[in-house]
Design a protein around this nucleic acid. Structure first.
Lengths: 369, 369
DNA sequence: TTGTAAGCGTTATCAT
DNA sequence: ATGATAACGCTTACAA
């Protein structure tokens, strides 16, 4: 606690001093107070609390009673100055818009839960100057490690990981990641699998439905990787992809979309969806109104979404994002690096994409071919 | 940095010592290193950085050069031991399920942004033992203040705010809040306004649509306050309220809902909605299919939702939650308490509910009465 | 089994 | 204008 000392001068009040007072001055008990109350030395108090040397039952009881009575909690900073870890990891999520998107939430919570399980708290960093913030909190020893969320293709936070002085794990796969470890779904494989899945069932023309143009524009890593891989592999196979988002999406209208895309001679037989549950539901409704049923007339495969817990008008086969698994892996990797001094710089761990089948993908009706 | 000293013994390797090493040992420059490199004393370095006393340009240049060269960042813990504030606030959100809900996200982000604007970082606490975590981080001086999210009617975190030793603000209004300050929308007023709004337009029977039974079951504060006020005021007015959620909502089907509720003699003329955009859209679709148009046949007033940025099949008049405003007020209040030592214990600040009119509420068609 | 004291990195005071 | 130093609260090596 700082006490500022002011002097009433003829010209006004002037600050002329500042003294640091002990814990006692602001009603907080320190280890000295506990020692005094228990009639022992400070080191005895410390050892009773840490259990690092044997203490007589009698002494231990006295100390614990004093701790209880005074409501003593060791000061975090003082402990850290003695080399004890802070047990805090930074979580970087410099999100700009998209505030109403559920998807980030799962990553925040799963990271925090997993960190908590390992005994760490999470410092949330959402400022615009992400690299500056990360430098600050790592260099000042405020945190023991760093997790990066919402990775872009060219992600400066990952590229500059070497500046952080603490281990760093990204959930996502940027193109340059320097000293940063990366954990993600293999979205390149996911794109290929999506194309294969539909092609192998006889589909030859497919529409790619998205409502996340903002993600593309700012270069969000996984959507770019998925799309690139999807388009490339589709081209190899001879699978035609119609990209929905050429339409102005600000005033997206499901009826117009369905009419424009499906009311043609050579209509697509499947949708690869990356739009939200809400948008996809509207499209499903319009398909029904247009007399097209899923999956008999149109197959639907949703990729990079997470519909568990969402109310869908019908069950949709999905290659979902996996926040829980990824956050778990990221935190495990990071905590091992922190506690075992494992060198994880540059490590990349990609998970196989999952496919949750709910019957919305079918063979193309031969009568239609 | 700790260095553990091991001894190779006949029976194996045994740890027999542990020494704390200076910053230099792990490659991190401390203020002493800077002083040495610049050829000045440590106090001079400190003063150059803080600007708290006049320094010759020549010395300042030397010091800054050394700081740059060594990449020196002051140690956060050492600073705090000298009484400098930590600039961290705790954000408590012990969320259990509902991970896929967008709504929390806005509160996380707006709190973090506003805190950042005021120079604070946010420590995210999501553990089950919320009170324990809050005691720990406040008593250990890790944080300078506390914000509570997701307040329940009987919220133990708020009730125990007296234990925290740091100022505490809740975004929400629990029934017992002791030393905790509270910032919220006046949901009691909101419930009354919703009833008034519809009654004054001639509505006499209204359905209350929700998809958040879990919130009710665990006693989420604002949904209870809103519902209670709505029901009470409706009763006074003579407005009948049909509660949707008596239906098993696990397998909610919008068609069934619309049929059950609207395909009766004395059908409701309005919906008070508290369900998600996705669910409401499905209901809107079914109303259309049933030949009921909004607002000519059915008015829709959404309360306690946040549809800005959501794609609705038609614009909906809304009394929204206001994450940005509430987080702003909460952080302002808290930071003032921290920095000006204002006593905010027990303060309650309720905002007037907003009403965003988008034409989905109309007078009851007299022909129908 | 317990006490004494050094030292972590920084800032403010006092002295020059 | 600058330097030397005590103090912050805690942990741990060392002494008793």
């Amino acid at each position: 606690m700082l006490v500022f000392i002011y002097v009433q001068w003829e010209t006004g009040i002037v600050q002329c001093g500042c003294r640091k007072l002990g814990k006692g001055a602001c009603g907080m008990a320190g280890i000295k107070d506990v020692a005094r109350a228990a009639g022992v030395s400070v080191s005895t108090v410390s050892y009773v609390l840490s259990g690092k040397r044997s203490i007589s039952v009698k002494t231990a009881d006295k100390v614990m009673a004093a701790v209880e009575k005074l409501g003593y909690t060791p000061d975090a900073s003082a402990r850290k100055m003695r080399g004890v870890r802070n047990q805090i990891i930074a979580l970087s999520a410099p999100i700009r818009g998209d505030i109403n998107q559920a998807k980030y939430n799962a990553y925040f919570l799963h990271t925090a839960w997993q960190a908590k399980d390992r005994g760490y708290d999470v410092l949330l960093l959402t400022g615009e100057d992400a690299v500056g913030d990360l430098r600050r909190v790592t260099q000042s020893n405020l945190v023991d490690g760093v997790v990066l969320l919402d990775i872009e293709e060219h992600d400066v936070r990952a590229a500059e990981a070497g500046l952080y002085s603490k281990p760093c794990v990204a959930i996502g796969l940027p193109s340059e990641h320097g000293d940063c470890a990366c954990v993600d779904i293999d979205f390149t494989m996911a794109g290929r699998q999506a194309a294969d899945c539909l092609y192998s069932k006889g589909h030859r023309k497919v529409v790619f439905l998205r409502d996340n143009e903002a993600d593309y524009e700012r270069g969000s890593g996984y959507v770019l990787l998925f799309r690139e891989s999807l388009m490339a592999h589709a081209k190899e196979l001879g699978l035609r992809i119609v990209e929905s988002s050429k339409h102005g999406f600000d005033q997206f209208d499901a009826a117009t979309f369905v009419h424009d895309v499906f009311d043609v001679e050579d209509r697509p037989t499947a949708i690869i969806n990356q739009a939200s549950a809400n948008v996809l539901n509207q499209v499903l409704q319009e398909l029904q109104s247009a007399g097209l049923s899923v999956p008999d007339n149109v197959s639907v495969l949703s990729c990079g979404t997470y519909f568990e817990g969402e109310l869908m008008t019908q069950p949709i086969t999905e290659m979902p994002v996996m926040p829980q698994e990824l956050c778990f892996k990221a935190v495990e990797l990071l905590v091992n690096a922190i506690e075992s001094h494992t060198d994880i710089r540059g490590v990349v761990e990609l998970s196989r994409p999952a496919m949750h089948r709910h019957g919305s993908v079918a063979e193309v009706d031969v009568g239609e071919q």
